[in-house]
Simulated assay, not measured.
Amino acid sequence: MRADLADLHAFLAVARAGGFREAARGAGGSPSGLSDAVRRLEAALGLRLLHRTTRSIRPTEAGERLLQRLEPALGEVAAALEAVADFRDRPAGTLRLNVPVSAARLVLPRIVPPFLAAYPDIRLEVMAEDEFVDLLRAGCDAGIRYDERLDADMIAVPIGPRRQRFATAAAPDYLRRHGRPEHPRDLLGHACLRGRFPGGALYPWEFERAGELVRVDPTGPLLVGLGGATDLAVAAAIAGTGIIKLFEDWLRPHLDSGALEPVLEPWWQSFSGPFLYYPGRRLVPAPLRAFIDFVRDRAD
């Protein structure tokens, strides 16, 4: 049994669009040409793949089963053809990344502008969200996450600084009014600005010094959703509302300017930097390969 690849694409286009005329508008062909292609495919398979009426077209049971296997298979074919672009001097196409808000703010600004300048034929789409997603289902080529959140079947490439710290800080005015904590447990008597992950869990406050790990669960007047609302907590800390705990790099401009002062700095916990990750079971598209090579060349 043999089926022409173009006929398979025609069947997929018609099934997605729900009609020959609609598919022709999207594919740039003719309804009659698509109809002929689907008939050839049905003849080659010896099966009816589409129910046709004057008002609608929908897949048969056999057509549905073929669709389920055909879409990912043709996606792999497209990726294989796109990977040939690696042999060109100027890789082209779209690269889609899914990243946490912290990476969009702290890691990518130093990488994206020079990367796009080096590869003007690549278009970059960045989706910033703190909820872990299925890359393929989200239509993304790669993502950025920290190592404890990577699946075993992913290939990981270090990106950005390899060591980072969580910093605790408060405005000078707040510390004058309420005093300076000397131990993490002192935070239980302070107004603390907390964050909540998309899944609902509170962002943990952990501190470490000389091998001693301390976890505290302070309360305060403000709780924000991590990601888009994080800057609100930073602004509240600068205004003297309470103590904030966040990436050191996020707070660094305000620490350097004096708008915030370090709190419990000897207890600031460090952690490994983020990774660019992508599925290891598929061919790497040319724009992603260019980005991977660019990141490796600029490794900190």
Rank of each mutant, 00 (worst) to 15 (best):
A6W: 06
L8I: 08
R21P: 05
A23V: 15
R25D: 13
G28V: 14
G28Y: 10
S30A: 14
S30I: 06
S32P: 04
V38Y: 04
R40Q: 06
A43V: 15
P59Q: 01
L70V: 09
V77S: 02
A78L: 08
D89L: 14
P91G: 06
G93F: 07
R96K: 15
L97A: 01
P109C: 05
P114D: 08
L116E: 03
Y119E: 03
D121P: 06
A128Q: 01
D134Y: 08
D141S: 04
I144T: 05
P161A: 13
D173F: 07
D173V: 14
D173Y: 12
R180N: 04
H183G: 03
D186S: 07
C192S: 04
G195L: 14
W205T: 01
R209E: 02
L213H: 15
R215A: 15
V216N: 02
V216S: 01
P218M: 14
T219W: 13
G220Q: 01
G227E: 00
A229V: 02
A229M: 07
T230C: 09
A233Q: 02
T241D: 15
I244F: 05
D249P: 07
D249I: 10
L255G: 05
S257G: 15
S257Y: 13
S257A: 14
W267T: 03
S270M: 07
Y278N: 02
P285Q: 05
I292P: 06
D293P: 08
